[in-house]
């Protein structure tokens, strides 16, 4: 049981960690582009925010999965 619980916990950790990295990678480029555009024109901030936060859904999937896993411990 203890080993099983440990494995589940590791799985949950990986789910969050890896999706977090994925989100970060995606946001890096988008963020730098958004920073560039906003530096010139603040008005596009709203539109860029969408692009900027789009990848965050990835980490949320990770979070949900992790949470569902944690329920099983």
């Amino acid at each position: 049981m203890a080993i099983e619980a440990g494995l589940i916990a590791i799985g949950a950790g990986l789910a969050i960690g890896l999706t977090g990295i994925a989100t970060a990678l995606a946001q890096k480029e988008i963020g730098s582009a958004a920073a560039g555009a906003v530096a010139e024109n603040e008005k596009v901030f709203g539109k860029l925010l969408i692009y900027m936060v789009l990848p965050e859904t990835i980490v949320l999937f990770g979070l949900v999965i992790a949470f569902m896993l944690m329920q099983k411990i």
Partner: peptide, 12 residues
């Protein structure tokens, strides 16, 4: 479906 899950950020 992705969008529905996306609201979990409220909790997160």
């Amino acid at each position: 479906s992705g969008h529905l899950v996306s609201y979990t950020r409220l909790a997160a």
